[in-house]
Every structure is written in C-alpha cells, then in structure tokens.
Simulated assay, not measured.
Amino acid sequence: MVFTTHFGGSTAVLTPATARPAALARWLWIVAWLVVAMVVVGGITRLTESGLSITEWKPVTGAIPPLSEAQWRAEFEAYQQIGEYRQITGPAGMTLADYKFIYFWEWAHRLLGRLIGLAFALPLAWYWVRGAIPKGYKPRLLALLALGGLQGAFGWFMVRSGLSGEVTDVSHFWLSIHLLTALFTLGGLVWTALDLDRLAKIPGARPARLGGFALVAALVLFVQLLLGAWVAGLNAGLASDTWPLMQGRFVPEFDASRGLFWAVTHDPFLIHFLHRWWAWAAVAALIVLARRVRPLERRASIAIHAAFGTQIILGIATVWTGVSLWVATAHQFVGALLVMATAWGAHILGRRP
C-alpha cells in the first residue's frame, strides 16, 4: 500500500504507508553527533601525535586493546620500528607509559569509527527490512554508508603514509582527505535528516536542492576546511604564535624555490597565512548566507553567525596559545558545528514547494 497525490494531472508515489521519516531523522541526528565526536577525538589524536601509535589495521580484533604486559610490549616494539620513534619520540625518551597514552587516543578514535559504522549499518538494515524508508531515500542512505566505509579506508591510507622508511608523520594530503570526508559525511547526514524531518511534517515534501549562493558559500567554506586540514597535517599552526602579523610582517617568508603551487600546497608558513586570511572570505560568504536565511528561519541564521564567530575567536586563540591542546580541539569541534549550521542554512534556501 502506498500514499499517492496528484500534481498537474500526474500521479506521484510519495512514501510507503510503513515509512517512518521522523524516526529515521532522529536516527540520523544521533549518527551526525557521533561523527562530531569522531572529529573531536580525531583532532586530539592529531594534536597529541598519536596517529602512528598503532601500526596495523585489524578491523575486528583491533577493537580489543592489549590486555597483558607482553601484548603492550609487542605493540611498543612494533611502534619502535617506524621513523617517528627512531627520529622523534625515541630520542626524546619515550617510555612504555608514554606510549600507552598515545595508543589510547588512536585506539579510541578507531573504536569510535567502528561504533559509528554499527550505529549506521544495523538500524539501516532494520528500517530497510521493515519498509520504513521513504521512497527515493535508499540510494542516499547507501551512499552515506559507503562514505563511512571510505572514511575508514582513507584513515588507514593516512596512517600507512607515515609508516614507511624514515617518514616521521602522515601525509597532509591523506589527512585532509580523511577529515574532509568526515565533514562531507556530516553535512550529508544533516541534510538527509532535515529532508526527512520535513517529509514527516509535510507528506510529499521533496528533497531540498543545493544550488545558487548556498553552493558558493559551501565551496568557500570547503577551501577553508581544506587549508585547515593542511595546517593540521603540516603542524603549520606552530609557524606563528602572533596575530595578525606573522614573523613581524603581514606576509611571512616562505619557500617558493620549487614554484608557487608547491608552496601553496606544502609550505607551512604560506598555508598558515592562507588559512588565517581566507577565513575572512568564508566569513563574508557565511554572513550573506545567514542574511538570506534569516527571513525564512531565524534560528539557522543565528546558528551560522554564532558558529563562525566562535570559530574565528578560537582560531586566533589557538595561534596565541601556541596551539594549546584544548583550545585547538575546541577550534576543530566548532568547525564541525559550522559545517552543520551551514548545511542547515543551505537546506533552508534549497527547499522546494
């Protein structure tokens, strides 16, 4: 049995009678907040240089941490074979207790990823079998599931990039792919939850479309997030602890000997500079987005303003504190909230009658 309605003489199938868009929306909001937690724990993992502490990827058995002293020593010995230990943490005098600290954050990050996978896959299967998924939403939910799987794969590629030879850190390119995939997935979860919320309130409501200025604002924000990921991957936040100047000047000295493109994608001083000033382009775009959203949904406009305002303050504070762990973590947390607020505002502008 299905509900139908007529538009201009044609019949459109809306949703099965068993569909539960409101329940699906609540489920997706829960998963979205779990992804936010994942981004935060991932930020702590990066800031504590914990990402290379686990040198193998064991999707099932890796969920159980070492339980005996012998197991801990085996893990520590495996870590001692990589460049990060031989060149950085080993000479600094890392002990087994120190290793357990960084192991915890990487293990927690991977465990949370596994939990998110289960929190998405199992309810999806249940809703699918029960016929609770509205018409047209199954491909999108499968795409979100696939993004979650890619996120795990990209995370391992990122870790693997830091395990070979005398490399002492992960590739900042793989780190940016890993982080941006998480934020893109977060935006998709929020967007789909909003579509389902609206469908629950307005039977027959069509999914919103991303276009016009909302797409422009999203692309400007994407560039800023990409630059932020490169800053994290290259430890470029440490390039300067002053603001607004760097090295006592507006534009810092940077290495352009291998060309400007290489400098834009590799030089920590230039990338730090671009990240701190492209932020204002993002602010301008988000202000316009929020002003367009305000007549339609004042709360979304306030959320966008609050998120980017707090993010700017935390970004400056991160610089001034020399990348304090908890200030920088808060900066990444609010970055995830900004993605959610931007998705909310763009969704409102993309809603169709």
Rank of each mutant, 00 (worst) to 15 (best):
3 F>T: 14
4 T>C: 12
4 T>R: 14
6 H>P: 00
6 H>S: 13
7 F>H: 15
9 G>T: 09
12 A>T: 14
15 T>A: 13
19 A>S: 14
19 A>Q: 07
23 A>P: 04
26 R>D: 15
28 L>R: 09
32 A>F: 03
37 A>Y: 05
38 M>K: 10
44 I>M: 12
47 L>D: 06
49 E>F: 06
52 L>P: 09
52 L>T: 08
52 L>Q: 04
56 E>N: 10
56 E>C: 04
56 E>W: 06
60 V>I: 15
60 V>N: 02
61 T>I: 11
65 P>A: 11
72 W>D: 11
73 R>T: 14
78 A>M: 08
81 Q>M: 12
84 E>S: 03
91 P>N: 05
92 A>F: 00
95 T>P: 10
97 A>V: 13
104 F>H: 10
104 F>S: 13
106 E>Y: 06
120 F>Y: 12
126 W>K: 02
126 W>A: 13
130 R>F: 01
130 R>Q: 14
142 L>V: 15
150 L>S: 11
154 F>W: 11
158 M>E: 08
161 S>A: 02
164 S>Q: 14
166 E>G: 12
167 V>H: 12
168 T>E: 12
169 D>H: 12
174 W>C: 05
181 T>P: 03
184 F>E: 10
184 F>H: 07
187 G>K: 07
189 L>W: 09
190 V>S: 11
195 D>V: 01
196 L>I: 11
198 R>L: 12
198 R>V: 05
202 I>D: 13
202 I>G: 04
205 A>N: 10
212 G>W: 00
224 Q>G: 12
226 L>C: 05
235 N>F: 13
237 G>N: 05
237 G>W: 05
237 G>F: 01
241 D>A: 13
241 D>F: 10
242 T>G: 07
244 P>R: 01
245 L>M: 14
247 Q>W: 03
260 L>M: 13
260 L>E: 06
265 T>K: 00
267 D>M: 00
270 L>G: 01
273 F>D: 03
273 F>P: 02
275 H>Y: 06
276 R>F: 00
279 A>T: 14
284 A>D: 08
290 A>W: 01
298 R>V: 13
301 S>V: 08
302 I>R: 13
304 I>P: 09
307 A>K: 02
309 G>W: 01
316 I>F: 03
319 V>N: 02
321 T>D: 05
323 V>W: 00
326 W>G: 03
329 T>M: 01
330 A>L: 14
331 H>L: 01
333 F>P: 07
333 F>L: 15
334 V>S: 09
341 A>E: 06
343 A>T: 15
348 I>M: 04
353 P>M: 06
